[in-house]
């Protein structure tokens, strides 16, 4: 601190030094706030430490597009027809995330013989859908659908009321099914 010749601080200089201290403190606080904000946005603050209320939906556009995709894909994946069965399965595989293809293949292999023998058609009718959670690249939708199984060899149709959680993940701009849990 500068002082006047008689030892007393000069008011103007004291103000200048005081302002410097305040500005330095402001800079420190701003740096800390910026760092904390960065950590919150990109680090440990997200997503696990946040309560469910804060993280169910982190992208509204993904909620909309992923929710629509989940419904369309569920119809494609869960329905099949003996007519053109193999081509349909091949086409549907392209709509799946790689990690889900093995499970789909196993399911289709399990129904193929009977489907072709009895000329089964399994049609899917979506009765309702809504989104459970959504991030930019992953959406989980709850889909209510009816699976209507028919065959020219039997006079009756079977209707299964299904509840399924459909998980779609974005892969190169396209939504693909990465998981399906009927329960």
């Amino acid at each position: 601190m500068t002082r006047s010749t008689d030892g007393a601080p000069r008011p103007g200089r004291v103000r200048g030094a005081g302002t410097t201290v305040v500005l330095v403190l402001l800079c420190v606080v701003a740096v800390l706030a910026t760092g904390l904000g960065w950590w919150w946005q990109h680090g440990a603050g997200r997503p696990d430490d946040l309560p469910t209320a804060e993280r169910a939906i982190s992208s509204v556009p993904a909620r909309d597009s992923g929710g629509r995709a989940a419904v369309e894909l569920a119809e494609r994946v869960l329905g099949y027809d003996a007519a053109g069965f193999d081509d349909e399965v091949r086409a549907t595989r392209a709509l799946l995330a790689p990690g889900f293809r093995q499970q789909y293949d196993a399911q289709m292999a399990g129904v193929r013989e009977q489907t072709l023998a009895e000329r089964v058609r399994l049609a899917v009718k979506v009765r309702g859908s809504a989104v459970s959670s959504a991030s930019a690249d992953r959406v989980v939708a709850l889909v209510f659908l009816d699976q209507v199984t028919s065959s020219p060899l039997t006079p009756t149709r079977r209707v299964d009321q299904v509840r399924v959680l459909v998980t779609v993940t974005r892969d190169g701009g396209e939504w693909r099914v990465s998981r399906m849990d009927a329960f």
Binding site: Q41, E54, I57, S58, V60, P61, S135, A136
Partner: peptide
């Protein structure tokens, strides 16, 4: 956080959900 414009909306929607 995602760099989009909807994050405040998303947080609000999450709370409502």
């Amino acid at each position: 956080a995602s760099g989009g414009t909807g994050d405040a909306d998303a947080r609000e929607l999450s709370r409502r959900q």
